[in-house]
Design a protein around this nucleic acid. Structure first.
Ligand code: FES
Ligand code: FES
Lengths: 143, 143
DNA sequence: TGTATTTAGGATAAAATTGTCCTTATTTAA
DNA sequence: TTAAATAAGGACAATTTTATCCTAAATACA
């Protein structure tokens, strides 16, 4: 469904949202540990999220990452789109170059419904609520 | 969403369903042409679908592929599962080893709903209806 | 029987994704 | 001012996915 990069990115953002709510900046090392993700690869993803304006990074001792905006104003769609682009939101289910209502592929009418529901879910799900569930012990970042 | 292999496989199955309804067996060459897919790669996928019992293949002149069952008894879920496995049906949205209601990841409750709707859609959509849409000119396999 | 046609399948190759390593730049604090 | 800590980023490596090529096996038909 999502790329590994995107999975790591989402987990990282949720962890940052939950943790920095208490402690301010969070280090790459801690993020990678708590999300069970490869450190160097996670670094690349956090760099990208910083460039995309979703994170603010600071170097040096006490440096780390914080959300660029309030978690209540950040949703999953923004994260997915920053890392995987918009293919998941608008792409054709059978891989045709574009999804086009006027010249639909055989699965278009059925697929677009589900795809649009996914889009809606991603847009409506905020980092705030995900971080809250994590904080409350209702959800987990590792198995 | 789906792998390239799966996209090619679905398109091939739809084309075979539509075409063999009229003419019996359909050749690899024709399938690859009409679905705008690489011939040799499509060959591998059709081999897999034959091994999985979704297609019956015949060698030699006048050889080719036909559906192993009536198109009304074949659905998208069977094809996806034969090629991509069941990860799309049961996998965790954040890539945790398993999706587990008892120890859910932060997006579980929202993700599982959409994933299950996708599963339902794939299970309910038959090759018959997809082939019919194609035959009627209501849908297209290429752009 | 022999030849042409078609699928099966093994061996590679190319491309994309995932992952690592190392150096540089920046910042903190002793 | 210096040393330590941290992110940035370039280069490279491993793995997976996608794609191609070639030979073998099976089949139809002249
Ligand atoms: S054209 Fe294929 S999903 Fe819309
Ligand atoms: S545990 Fe992640 S989707 Fe169910």
């Amino acid at each position: 469904m999502f790329s590994k990069a995107c999975e790591y990115g989402i987990k990282a953002m949720i962890y940052i949202a939950q943790k920095s709510d208490e402690d301010g900046k969070v280090s790459l090392k801690e993020i990678a540990e708590k999300t069970d993700s490869p450190v160097a690869f996670t670094a690349k993803i956090l760099q990208a999220l910083s460039r995309e304006g979703l994170l603010i990074s600071t170097k040096g001792p006490t440096g780390g990452f914080v959300l660029a905006k309030s978690p209540s104003n950040m949703n999953l769609a923004q994260i997915v789109s920053a890392i995987d682009g918009d293919k998941v939101f608008v792409g054709c289910g059978l891989g045709l170059e574009t999804c086009d209502n006027e010249r639909p592929c055989p699965v278009h009418h059925k697929f677009a419904i589900v795809r649009d529901e996914l889009t809606l879910m991603l847009n409506l799900t905020t980092l705030q609520e995900l971080a809250l569930g994590l904080k409350n012990g209702d959800s987990f970042l590792t198995r």
